[in-house]
Simulated scan of single mutants.
Amino acid sequence: MGKRQVGELEPSELVLSLIIADLASVPMQDYGIPLLTGILPILALLAMTMILSVLTMKSVRFRALMCGRPSIVIRDGLVDQREMARNRLTIDELLEELRAKGYTDPATVKYAILETNGQLSVLPYANQKPPTAQQLQVSAEESGLPLVVISDGRLLEHNLRALGRDRKWLDQRLEERGCSGLEAVFLLLVDQTGSIYLARKDMSV
């Protein structure tokens, strides 16, 4: 199923997870049932899942049958009541999802799409989007991916090497910030430009 949360599972994947959990619990509860009796149907279900996954990738029609299709519940600021009724989505649930995305007025939303995993994707009007640095014609420097260099007083040397830095550079940065050593640091993040985020360890914890 890949890296998914429970809320991101398709209906068929959620049902499969529940079935596997039920099958696994039977031989663990009843010592008279051989463990192999519970493993074989689980393996069969996993094999079936792999087959369905391949078919889903290869066939658009099969993917629509298994996973369904996204539904547009708001179009041009207007709520589509027919789509909401078809998906059994109440107005309270819709407004709650919009507030979670940072929108309180449906009129400011160009499209709101109910995805197949139950999540609501909100696409606002262009004049409701925050301007980008490119639109403002401002140059912005790429900071790169921040890496954890110190975690709870422990030095992650492989991340320090990946940043092209050494222990001497790290000791200098800690000294500049008044840290006596690694044990005084709870978290230290460093990006490709050398920018540092430092959180001191709370000794009272």
Rank of each mutant, 00 (worst) to 15 (best):
L78S: 15
E157F: 07
D171K: 01
Y197C: 14
V148T: 13
A100H: 08
D202R: 13
L147N: 06
T56L: 05
D92P: 02
D92V: 04
L78W: 01
G68W: 03
E10T: 15
L155Y: 00
Q5K: 15
E96P: 01
R167P: 01
L163H: 04
I91V: 10
A133R: 08
L89D: 07
D30T: 12
I74E: 00
A126R: 15
L136I: 04
K168H: 04
A100I: 02
E97S: 13
E176P: 02
D22Q: 12
D152F: 01
Q192N: 14
M28D: 10
G194H: 05
P27D: 09
A107H: 02
E115Y: 03
M57K: 13
F62N: 10
L23T: 10
S25H: 05
V6P: 10
K110S: 05
C179G: 09
A85R: 15
M84S: 08
P124K: 00
R4P: 02
N117I: 07
P106H: 03
P146V: 09
A140T: 11
G118V: 05
M48E: 09
P41N: 02
L187G: 11
L65N: 02
Y103I: 03
L174I: 01
E13N: 09
D92W: 01
D152P: 07
I113Y: 02
I150T: 03
V73P: 02
C67A: 07
G77M: 04
N159A: 12
I33C: 13
R167N: 03
E142V: 07
Y103F: 14
R177C: 10
K129C: 11
M50S: 11
L160K: 00
A21P: 01
D105Q: 01
K3C: 03
G181D: 15
I91H: 09
R88C: 07
L136A: 14
A47W: 02
Q172A: 15
R154S: 12
R86H: 13
L182E: 08
T49I: 01
T116V: 13
I72A: 11
K101L: 10
D30Q: 14
I196H: 05
T56M: 10
M1N: 07
N87T: 13
N117Q: 04
K168S: 09
A184E: 15
T193Q: 15
L95K: 10
I72D: 05
D80W: 00
L189T: 04
V138C: 12
